[in-house]
Computed example of a mutant assay.
Amino acid sequence: MKIALLESLGISEESLERLAASLKKDGHDFSSFPRSDDRDENISRLSGVDVAMIANMPLPGEVIAGADSLKMISVAFTGYDHVDMKVCTERGVAVSNCAGYSTDSVAELALGLSVAVCRNILPCDRAVRDGSTKAGLLGNEIAGKTVGIVGTGAIGCKVAKIFRVLGCSVLAYSRTERDELKELGVSYVTLEELMVSSDIVSIHVPCNDETVGLIGEEKLAMMKPSAILINTARGPIVDNDRLAEALTSGRLSGAGIDVFDMEPPIPKDYPLLKAPNCVLTPHVAFATPEALEKRAIMAFDNVFAWISGSPRNLVY
């Protein structure tokens, strides 16, 4: 088999060599490349390749269709909306992902963004550096608040458990209800009830045709003026233009956003950049050394499993 890694997995060269060594030992050809967004370059790199490995670089249909030998794509990421699944389906290309590698890291950032917004951490930092005081910067406690979790997959479950430990009431909206959360006192409700009742809303659903624009003007208008929105999932799930308007007009108290309509860098005129009480991070929720090492191992294990005829973590 010929395997090509089309971008860095964010691990050391030593770790990459160790993982690739097992493939080479079994007689497979392994190559790695720096990321390129050039279509023709990627088609060339995939010439004769059986297995492509990527993280979050887009893999459009024309590249997949141009890869004459491609049979499998190992996505070192939880989401796979950056891969043209329609073309993969048409051509019979198997696709696996690495769901679960970043559960802790994403959940921790969701909490961190919530604390940063509720306690005015960034304005407080600036105040100290500017020789000012806490005047006008008193924040709100999270304990005792109602937190709404939109999507209770592995990450949503982890976030719900964290907020329960902090003494919050937790509401959840999800396609699948989890008994483990119900046993902790989490109540499953409609999305509308969650938006109306929550002090903090945290988004944890995948990006697909059903969830793009899920949190738009209508849902944002349902939220309490004192509420905050946290999104560490995917940018297009939230209408960030409408979110910026809600923050600017005071219809919403604050937001913590790690994902946008595009990958950072963000254009200078992006509305959220000027919205008040909005803490922004550059799609970093998944990016810890621990998580990146874990996902690299999973991505290679998915390749081994597929080659051995016992594929796992397949999304197609």
Rank of each mutant, 00 (worst) to 15 (best):
E192C: 06
D104T: 15
D81H: 14
A246F: 00
S187K: 15
G250M: 00
L6I: 06
L19I: 13
V205P: 03
E90H: 14
P34H: 09
A110N: 11
A52G: 09
V117C: 00
E210R: 14
N42H: 01
K86I: 15
D261H: 04
R295S: 12
K224Q: 08
S198P: 05
E217L: 04
E218T: 13
A94W: 08
S105R: 04
T146S: 01
S32N: 14
A65L: 14
K134T: 11
L184F: 05
K158W: 10
S31D: 15
F30W: 08
A244G: 00
Y173W: 13
M195R: 06
A99N: 07
I200V: 09
A160D: 12
R234Y: 02
E180Y: 14
M262G: 03
Y316N: 13
P267W: 05
L272E: 11
C278V: 07
A246L: 00
S44L: 07
C88D: 12
P225C: 00
L314W: 12
C207Y: 13
D50S: 11
N208T: 03
M72H: 07
S15M: 11
K24C: 14
C168V: 08
D199Q: 02
A233Y: 00
A21T: 11
L220D: 02
K274P: 01
A154T: 12
L171Y: 09
L214W: 08
A116L: 12
P264L: 09
V212Q: 11
G235D: 01
P60Q: 08
S36W: 10
N42T: 01
D199V: 04
P58K: 08
G48Q: 01
D38R: 11
L109T: 12
T190G: 11
E193Q: 10
V83S: 12
D241C: 05
S310A: 10
S12E: 11
N97W: 01
V212L: 09
V51C: 09
I142R: 06
R242V: 09
G185F: 05
F33I: 10
E183A: 15
E180T: 15
I142D: 05
S36H: 11
P225W: 01
P225S: 05
N120A: 02
L243Q: 01
S69N: 08
A299E: 08
G100W: 09
C278P: 15
E177H: 15
A154D: 14
A76R: 06
Y188R: 05
D125E: 10
S102V: 05
L184S: 06
D40Y: 10
P267A: 07
S47C: 02
I155A: 09
A299F: 05
E193M: 07
G61D: 14
R312N: 09
Y101C: 02
G92W: 13
G256H: 00
R164D: 13
E290S: 12
S308K: 07
G139Y: 05
P271I: 14
M72R: 01
P311M: 04
A4E: 01
